[in-house]
Design a protein around this nucleic acid. Structure first.
Length: 295
DNA sequence: CTGGGGAAGGGGCCC
DNA sequence: CGGGCCCCTTCCCCA
């Protein structure tokens, strides 16, 4: 009995020591992050000052793209943002977007800054979401974030350029598909969609996997394939604590687990022939083949 | 049920 | 402004 008490004491001491060590580690990490944040802010402020000084020296160079160009009397004076400048006889390309970004940096992002391209619901479930550089800029007053966007009056989709809106309207709301495949007669809305489609008939696969040498017709399919070699699984399903390589599989997994979490009667996909219910559209589709086979 | 490839839709953006 | 390319996303199918 005495031995058991001693053991308890020993375990308690060890646990306390381990907890103390973990807390210390956490505190140190937090302190390091705080220092990092302070350093970053200081750097941002310094860069801002530099940008302000530069813009005082050369205001015309920082004209936003959308602003109409003023005719210049000096033929060599270039006003567009994409002009190259000669510095010490060397051609130096301007990098206006970065300059704009730095000039637009706020001291702290707004509290309710939203994450563009992020599925918030998914994020809440624990799905990992990768943010591009543009995403980070988006919430902090980037030029694109503030630019007036033209919106589609049919579906509300926003576009930066009028011609992109026109393209969207013609493809998605006109009901017409202007391009017809000469091989199978399939109609497609865009020329480049047709080009891609024709590859399927001609067996063209211009994209080669550097790991296994396998060819693919589309770069995005190659990219997903390469995850097999790299082991990259960018999607995390919070429901079953699993990483997956396909975004669609994540969706299917979520559909299944959420349907299972509810009662079986709440399954959303119902067979019109026999009334049986399924968790996912994919499962229902597989089931429907049984009826088709019986026919 | 899972993993993987094929195919298409559609927005961004360079030229 | 439009063509075309790039890329991401989504869906389907199959082993």
């Amino acid at each position: 009995m005495l031995g058991e008490q001693r053991l308890r004491l020993l375990v308690r001491e060890r646990l306390a020591a381990a907890a103390e060590e973990i807390f210390g580690l956490v505190e140190r990490t937090v302190a390091e992050y705080r220092e990092e944040v302070v350093r970053s802010r200081r750097e941002i402020l310094q860069l801002r000052e530099q940008v302000e000084r530069l813009s005082e020296l050369r205001p015309p160079v920082l004209l936003p793209k959308a602003e109409p160009l003023q005719p210049s009397e000096d033929p060599d004076h270039r006003t567009t943002v994409e002009t190259k400048e000669e510095v010490d006889g060397v051609q130096v390309k301007q990098e206006p977007p970065d300059l704009f970004f730095l000039a637009d940096v706020q001291e702290s992002p707004p509290e309710d800054a939203t994450l563009p391209h992020c599925d918030l619901e998914a994020a809440a479930r624990g799905v990992t979401v990768t943010l591009s550089e543009e995403d980070w800029r988006g919430g902090e007053g980037s030029s694109s974030g503030r630019k007036n966007k033209t919106a589609c009056r049919f579906c509300g989709a926003a576009f930066k350029r009028d011609c992109d809106l026109l393209r969207h309207t013609a493809e998605s709301h006109s009901g017409r598909k202007a391009f017809k495949c000469p091989e199978c007669g399939k109609e497609l809305a865009r020329r480049d969609s047709l080009v891609l489609h024709l590859r399927t008939h001609r067996g063209e696969k211009p994209h080669r996997c550097p790991f296994c040498g396998r060819f693919f017709s589309q770069t995005s399919n190659l990219r997903v394939h390469m995850r097999k070699h790299t082991g990259e699984k960018p999607y995390y399903c919070g429901c079953c604590q699993k990483m997956v390589a396909h975004s669609y599989h994540l969706k299917i997994c979520l559909q299944r687990t959420s349907a299972q979490a509810r009662t079986a009667g709440a399954r959303a996909f119902r067979c019109p022939r026999c009334g049986k219910k399924f968790c996912t559209a994919a499962d229902l589709k597989v089931h429907k083949r049984i009826h088709e086979a019986r026919k």
